[in-house]
Nucleic acid binder design. Structure first.
Length: 286
DNA sequence: TATCCGTGGCC
DNA sequence: TGGCCAAGGAT
């Protein structure tokens, strides 16, 4: 399985920006932040802009966090932009301006969890570590466990499952990237392309006749339309496009439900995504 | 562990 | 049309 995935990846893997020679560890960190729950196609243009403007952690650390939030634009989950800015500050202060290469150090950074820490360690530094993302979990669930779907994540179990599959250290990056790419391009959530899958001949799910998912299912997201999250999004969209501060009155106009808007503003202030300035106005953090 | 956190595209 | 899904993380 391992070598087949590596061979397939080298033949069929996409030429993504973060796979270009010379791509920096900082670029890897930024790209992994952007790729957290945001599709590749939407990330690519924003990543290029972001890295052109802030090619190093020191460059980003020298800018106000609000600038990072504004550049994040509509990628979603703007707290990621704030955390990435805090990463830059920490990297300058504690790691001499260089992205750390140890998983433990990476995990100490805000917004860096089990996936991002290992992705950077492996893809930027060639570490021998298990990377686990939703694609990899799905491939393992199907090919190795014969189940249609990965179900809810469990960090410890998932890391153990992927660790058991790791090939020799020098092949770790290609295997990790390859199995992830396989899940993204072939072993997809909907309409998997088993006819072109390099490991279909050993796939337990295929062999069992593609049974329905067994076991606990992923929890479904609440409806976005009319949600508190959408209210937060409306406030952030208004503040991103504003040239100056935005008055409380202008904010009222961006969302119909006052109680909901109040919760959104309170939450955003608490998260540090917006700031209250003197005259009952708001802005992105300076 | 379950829930919260944006946004947009797809079938 | 609307639910599902997308290289997760924090609490």
């Amino acid at each position: 399985m391992q070598q087949e995935i590596i061979d397939w990846f080298e033949a069929e893997g996409r030429d993504l920006p973060w796979r270009q020679p010379g791509f920096t560890p900082w670029g890897s960190l930024v790209s992994e932040f952007m790729l957290q729950q945001t599709p590749v196609a939407r990330v690519i243009p924003k990543l290029e802009e972001f890295l052109q403007r802030w090619p190093t952690p020191a460059a980003l650390a020298a800018s106000p966090s609000g600038d990072a939030v504004r550049a994040w634009a509509n990628l979603g989950y703007p707290r990621r932009a704030l955390w990435l800015h805090q990463c830059a500050v920490t990297i300058v202060e504690k790691f001499k301006g260089e992205v750390p290469r140890d998983v433990e150090d990476l995990l100490s950074l805000p917004g860096v969890g089990p996936y991002t820490a290992r992705a950077v360690a492996v893809f930027a530094f060639g570490a021998h570590e298990p990377v686990v993302d939703t694609n990899i979990r799905r491939v393992i669930a199907r090919h190795n466990q014969g189940n249609a779907d990965q179900g809810p994540p469990s960090t410890q179990r998932d890391l153990e499952a992927m660790t058991a599959l790791l090939p020799s250290p020098e092949k770790s990056p290609a295997f990790n990237a390859g199995i992830m790419e396989l899940g993204a391009l072939v072993c997809t959530a909907r309409n998997p392309r088993c006819d072109v899958c390099p490991i279909a001949h050993t796939c337990a799910w295929k062999k069992a006749g593609y049974p329905e998912h067994v076991g606990p299912k992923k929890t479904v997201q609440k409806k976005y339309e009319g949600s508190d999250r959408q209210a937060r999004g409306a406030v952030m969209a208004l503040l991103r496009q504003a040239q100056h501060t935005v008055s409380s009155e202008e904010l009222q106009a961006c969302w119909p439900d006052h109680a909901q808007l109040g919760r959104a503003i309170t939450g955003l202030l608490q998260d540090g995504l917006i700031e209250l300035v003197a005259d009952d106005s708001y802005q992105l953090p300076a």
